[in-house]
Amino acid sequence: MKYTGNIIKYGDNVDTDVIIPARYLNTSDPKELASHCMEDIDKSFTGRVRSGDIIAAGTNFGCGSSREHAPIAIKASGISLVIAKSFARIFYRNAINIGLAIVECPEAAEEISEGDIVEADMDSGIIRNMTTGKEYRTEPFPEFIQKIIENGGLMQSAADGAI
């Protein structure tokens, strides 16, 4: 699986309260959640995000609450992939479980800039910054995790007999 998209860049410790503020947790509708995604850290996000865009961020992305609404909101916004220096562990599980592609790559997350076009090949683990030409290597997920993500999450994969 390959993702190519425009980069939207954030810093360290982007928490789930800013990804989807708790005042909107009275719903679990993905479209409604997406309409408030990143609202408390970046009011311009919902207006400028395009389908296929990639988030690049610093350490501990998704820290805080266990709300699965956070990766759901990001995915429903059209984000195809999140590249971070590191992920908070509950967000990491949740992203895989709901089928949001993620990859840990400290070097890429540091060097990639807002607006760069980046291509990530999940099978080989190679991330290429098309804007600067620089390549980064990461450890690809085992095949079954890739299948879960590609099939739209754990439950969908189980229902489809994909895993």
């Binding site: 609450s65 266990s66 709300r67 699965e68 509950i90 599980r93 949740n94 709901i98 754990l154 439950m155």
Partner: peptide, 27 residues
């Protein structure tokens, strides 16, 4: 496991206890 990040509280009782998301809770 608990679909709430502060599920780690019960470690005070000598248990392994951790927060997960809703899909893990469903499973």
């Amino acid at each position: 496991i608990g679909a709430d990040s502060h599920t780690c509280t019960y470690g005070a009782l000598g248990s392994f206890s951790t927060g997960v998301g809703s899909t893990d809770m469903a499973f």
